[in-house]
């Protein structure tokens, strides 16, 4: 199968203006996605998951961040040196985006219908009548009630879940082949979260759309991804199918995260607490990024950085001593 997206050894630097120090937000991320594949990028705050998405779209806040090395290919095309006009063709048309806060991502002074129509006007050669018809069908497709009325409604008149549905309609309006969803359900109520994820994944099946789902929530990943990629301090530390990751975590960080999740069945027993804190991006790492917090750390871990290796079938981990489980 042809590769849709290929990110190789992506490094993003961060400059701290007052001190002039240089740090690393991404320390060499590799990510491959096939057409129609649903990949979840999981990690805690500061691990670089959103920066990965912004780098793919060339939307990094510059300064202070800068892509210092690495390669990003989309459908075999290098995204490294495109002009502004070429980027306008890719963003919104080839690659759709859904962000965390639906209410603040939508324009508050423009009706919902107009915002979707604008995307269509910019990217397709449809006539005004066709745009209206397409907007109505998109709104119905994402499960919003009464599309004709929505055309003239403003974001503040809709609930968070409805706004997120409208965002999804906008993101898929021009038939992209790749969708980046950055924490699309974090701002929503729990019973609404699964509805939005179900909608996202129904769309991927109907339109053969690949999705990069960025989230901090391990639980929602379980039923909603073909592959899970776990980031820690700007590095992929583990990657595999969800069943493998949840049943046989190989990297001590993943193991720690899973053991730290409160569950009713763990009642009365203390939760596992990953010792220490995430190192700062300005820290110079020699060995493994997780060494200071790892229960299995050995001398080797502090001296050299472990590579990402296949430890089980379809399962990779960046660890010298992957779990024997």
């Amino acid at each position: 199968m042809p590769e849709l997206l290929c990110v190789r050894n992506l490094k993003v630097s961060l400059r701290d203006p007052p001190t002039g120090r240089e740090g690393w937000v991404l320390r060499g991320v590799d990510l491959r996605m096939e057409a129609g594949e649903r990949v979840a990028l999981v990690g805690e705050s500061g691990c670089g998951k959103s920066v990965t998405a912004l780098s793919i779209l060339r939307l990094l806040p510059r300064p202070p961040m800068e892509i210092s090395s690495g390669q990003i290919e989309f459908k075999g095309r290098d995204l490294g040196n495109l002009t502004r006009e070429q980027w306008l063709e890719i963003r919104g048309r080839e690659i759709g985006m859904v962000f965390q806060e639906p209410i603040s991502s939508l324009n508050p002074v423009m009706p919902i219908g107009e915002q979707i129509a604008e995307t269509l006007r910019n990217h397709s050669g449809l006539s005004t009548g066709e745009i209206r018809a397409r907007t109505l069908s998109l709104l119905a497709q994402v499960g919003l009630p009464d599309p004709p009325r929505l055309l003239s409604q403003y974001p503040h008149q809709l609930s968070g879940g409805m706004c997120q549905r409208a965002m999804i309609a906008m993101a898929v309006a021009c038939g992209p082949s790749f969708l980046i969803a950055d924490e699309p359900t974090t701002a929503l109520d729990v019973t609404v979260q699964t509805q939005i994820l179900d909608l996202l994944f129904r769309m991927t099946e109907e339109q053969r759309l690949a999705v990069l789902l960025i989230t901090h929530n391990l639980m929602i990943v379980r039923g909603h991804a073909d592959r899970v990629v776990i980031l820690y301090l700007g590095l992929v530390v583990e990657e595999g199918v969800p069943g493998e990751i949840f049943r046989h975590p190989q990297h001590p960080y993943t193991e720690g995260l899973l053991a730290a999740l409160p569950e009713v069945s763990h009642k009365g027993r203390p939760l596992y607490n990953i010792p220490g804190v995430v190192p700062s991006p300005f820290e110079d790492l020699k060995g493994c990024a997780f060494a200071d917090r790892c229960p299995r750390v050995e001398r080797k871990c502090r001296e050299s950085a472990p590579p990402l290796l296949e430890t089980r079938k379809g399962h990779q981990a960046r660890c010298f001593y992957p779990s024997g489980k």
Partner: peptide, 27 residues
Amino acid sequence: LRTPRHPYTKALLAASQGRWVMIEGEP
């Protein structure tokens, strides 16, 4: 949590475990 009786509790429990939630719409 072992035997939720209200349909809303059942939905909350399913959502918290990443399972399919049978209810639709929003509060």
